[in-house]
Each structure stands twice: as structure tokens, then as C-alpha cells.
Nucleic acid binder design. Structure first.
Lengths: 152, 152
DNA sequence: ATGCATGCAAAGACTTTGCAAATTC
DNA sequence: GAATTTGCAAAGTCTTTGCATGCAT
């Protein structure tokens, strides 16, 4: 199996800390799933994570992947990105600047972006209503240039 | 069964036009599902729609509700709102000003708002990437003044 | 007559759960 | 050694599909 690189050691430490705090254990399987997750940029479905993880840990089961994803979310390393018809997909949540999504309804392409003026406007909304901010999701849907050209 | 009110006649006409265009037919069942959908403010899950529709058309089947929702979406009357663990929920898409949501994670309160500067910024994002806009979802999460005071 | 619509039940896709064996601390 | 983790398979959700019957045109 491939080992986690040094660049992943911080995430590994976070997961270990989270597990210890919960009285849970670090295992090779969990390390492998974390490694796969960190090696994939962008969004991963549980299915994709399972396929990749199986290359490193051939005997791994789907259930373990699902269980481990929940741990990663709990540890603040992963975040639910969106639920489509391929199931829920996840994205990096640590050392990964917050961004929003522009999704093509034609081909499924996802573009990540961050817009300061949107962020500022959101802060204003929170202030106006006296809310303490905790997080947000913005998803813009439409058709990309390619799909528009093809007639949706 | 309850009949559609005059205020719903515009939506009814839209659905009829859409169906005719597709070579499909308007039926009492479809009218009932539309009526139920229009009578529910906010978000509806397919399950809730089924339960309500069954009160008006006792023999209606789940499959018909699912099939009809897709027609409503196709006709531009409904829109997918979000997919959670209760399944996908839908909201009104016609004559229903677009709005975004500010959600309190403490008490579940939902405040609807609309912010012109956010809308403008979103249009700019679409233009910048050459996308043809189709819709968006913005959900701001946090804690409302009351919950903050109570210590989350 | 032709073909769409419906309800039922079966199938499908995605996720969770139960359990005995293996592994970790 | 005690308790957690794992893989497998079964069960659970939510949604879609197949099909015979019923209706509309």
C-alpha cells in the first residue's frame, strides 16, 4: 500500500486527535481512506472513494468507506458537497479555502469559485438579522458554454 | 376532492400547455397533485406530497406522484430545492420570487431573504464563466440572536 | 382503435446495520 | 484481555421501471 506523504501528516494528526477524543482507534484502513480522500482534488462520491481505496486495500468493504467518511466529516476534514443522483459527494474541508460551486446541468462539470463581494454581502445579511455565522452553501446552476453550444 | 381555485388557473394553464406540447394529457390525478403542490408553501418532499395527494385522491400511487413532480419541474412550475436524508424536496418555481434562506442551526428557524447585491454578483459569475444561468441555491447557516443568547 | 396514464409490485440505487472474526490499545 | 473495527451480507430508504388495466382522444 501507498503510505501517506509528509504533506498529509497534519490531516492525519487531526484525524488521530479526533479519534482519540472519541475513544476510537486509528487503523490502516482508516489511514488508507484518508490518504485516498486527500489525494483526490475536488469532489468525491462515496463510490469513487471505495473504488480508489480498494486499489490500496483490496479487501476493504463499502460499509467501511461509508463509516470512515462520516469520521472524516466529524473530524472536520471532509464536508458534504452535494447530493445528486450519483449519491452524496464530499470535498476537502481542512486547509481548503471555502468556495462556492458553479454546476453545469448539462454535463455535470463543477467549477469552484470564490467571490469577495458575495462573501461581504453574506456577512451583511448575518449582521442585519443578528445571526452568528456558521457556514453557507451557494450553488449556481446553469449550462456551460459547451453545452449551450450543443443546444443544452 | 378539492378543486383548484381561480388563483391557480395560471399554473394549471401552464401545465396544460406543457403537456399538450409534449403530446401528454391533463388528468384529474395530475390536477390534484398540482393543487396539493400549490397549496403547500415552502418546501415539500415527495413523501409529503404523496400523503397530501392521497387525501384528495385516495387511490393515488407513489409512482404517479414521482412522475407528476417531474412533469411539474419540466413545466417550470416546480424546482428541486435540496436533497437531504428525507429525500429530495421541491419548491414553487413560478410566480414565486426567488429567495434565499438563512437558517438557525439552534432552533431550526428559517428566514427567507433576497439581496440584490448577491444576485448581481451571481450574474457576474455566470457571465465570467460563459454559463447560461438556470437557478441557484444559497443557504446561510448560523445561530439566531435568541439561540446565541442561550449559549448556542 | 390507438396510445397515454395509473396503481401495484418488483427492481434499482445508495446507504446503514447486524454480526462474527480480526485487530488495536 | 477488553473493546473497537472490519467485511460481508442483509436490511433500509428513496426513487424508478415494468406491466396489465383503465381512459381519453
Amino acid at each position: 500500500m501507498r503510505h501517506l506523504g509528509t504533506s498529509d501528516s497534519e490531516e492525519l494528526a487531526i484525524l488521530e486527535g479526533y479519534l482519540k477524543e472519541k475513544g476510537l482507534r486509528m487503523t490502516p484502513t482508516r489511514e488508507a481512506v484518508l490518504g485516498v480522500f486527500l489525494s483526490i482534488e475536488g469532489h468525491v462520491t462515496a463510490e469513487a472513494l471505495f473504488e480508489e481505496a480498494r486499489k490500496r486495500e483490496p479487501g476493504i468493504g463499502q460499509a467501511t468507506v461509508f463509516r470512515t467518511i462520516k469520521l472524516l466529516v466529524g473530524a472536520g476534514l471532509a464536508r458534504e458537497a452535494c447530493s445528486g443522483q450519483d449519491g452524496t459527494s464530499y470535498e476537502h474541508a481542512f486547509h481548503h479555502a471555502h468556495h462556492d460551486h458553479l454546476v453545469c446541468l448539462g454535463c455535470g462539470r463543477i467549477i469552484e469559485f470564490k467571490d469577495p463581494s458575495i462573501e461581504r454581502a453574506q456577512e451583511a445579511i448575518y449582521r442585519k438579522h443578528g445571526f452568528s455565522p456558521s457556514g453557507h452553501h451557494l450553488r449556481l446552476e446553469g449550462y456551460c458554454p459547451g453545452c449551450v453550444k450543443k443546444g443544452r
